[in-house]
Design a binder for these strands. Sequence first.
DNA 1: CTTTGTCTTGAACCGCGTTCAAAATACAGC
DNA 2: GCTGTATTTTGAACGCGGTTCAAGACAAAG
Lengths: 198, 198
Amino acid sequence: MAGKVEARKAALRQKLVEAAEIRIARDGAGALRARDLAQDAGCAVGAIYNVFDDLTAIIMAVNGRTFQKLGAAVEASVAGAEAEPPSRRLILMSNAYLHFAVENTKLWRAMFDLRMAAGDAVPEWYMTALDDLFANIARPVGELFPDKDPGEAALMVRALFSAVHGIVLLGLEQRISGVPPERIEQMIAQVLEQIGSR
Amino acid sequence: MAGKVEARKAALRQKLVEAAEIRIARDGAGALRARDLAQDAGCAVGAIYNVFDDLTAIIMAVNGRTFQKLGAAVEASVAGAEAEPPSRRLILMSNAYLHFAVENTKLWRAMFDLRMAAGDAVPEWYMTALDDLFANIARPVGELFPDKDPGEAALMVRALFSAVHGIVLLGLEQRISGVPPERIEQMIAQVLEQIGSR
DNA sequence: CTTTGTCTTGAACCGCGTTCAAAATACAGC
DNA sequence: GCTGTATTTTGAACGCGGTTCAAGACAAAG
């Protein structure tokens, strides 16, 4: 039976990622414990390290899945809305981002909490997913500012994404704004409408 | 000699906070070690706990000082610029915020990294410092939108702060934008100018 | 069936926040 | 001062948690 080991490894990988996803979603990435994970996956603690370099590698794997879902949610929010004005589409995407963050707070946080270990090579899937997300934002931005050169437009795309991210981040943080999601929607709309109607 | 103990305690408090500030500024809050701190302050590990509840309390104390400095830097950036148009003043404050973050990255990060332990009472100094900061932002916002009611204006203030915070945060993060500070200034200006000139 | 290389196991290692019993120190009453 | 009591300071020890590693289990080849 050749390849049995490979299959075992792959199965363990998947079980570990699934267990980690459940635990992160419930308790946050900071509460993830190797021993709990091993128990969930029905393996020894040491086995984890045959399949992943360390715990952060598992969190990264979970983050990959989260990023996929986030991208899909944002993309879906403007599917079939091509006729809407560009600023409206920006607001739709931002609200999709907000709602994803509200409904998957712990998983969403895990994506940004993880301090990248000493700048060693951002994973390729990360850059791809990010580029996809930015491409969606770039379309309405291009319509709003047709005279901007590509470099400036790219900067604007990042600026808008970061701005919305900031509003969602601090809006969900108790100590800074601590306001209900409807208020956060208002904040996003206030800012983006100003930009759209200049 | 009554009160000798108090004096000792106060001196230890200060030495610990100073040592912690130096270490956080250099290595980040995550690298703060109780044993290192005790050595820096010339006391036993246990002594730390006679003076602070735990390590996060020390980080909080450092954050308090950082917040003071940040507030002062932002306020100074618009001192004597009352004649400038409001959107220009918003940009001045944002750039001050950016430069503070660039020059004190680790200390600035520490303020936001600290997960507030289960929502138990945000410290009073925190709310005060935040309100002071928001008051500075509220002035130009009030001039830009004189017709907005107070509630909406307050929301706008928070939205703008959060947006700028987001741009600075992700701008300094390698994996998302990873652009030089001048570009971050451009991003802020792009967004705020759109808002100012509606 | 034996050999050899690989996988799996979980006890052990180590770093680190925090605690606590013992030693040191401060203070009050004489 | 001196002695007894209370408080503070000490640092070794505790507990937790990520990671390692020597020993046993297992798979593939001869």
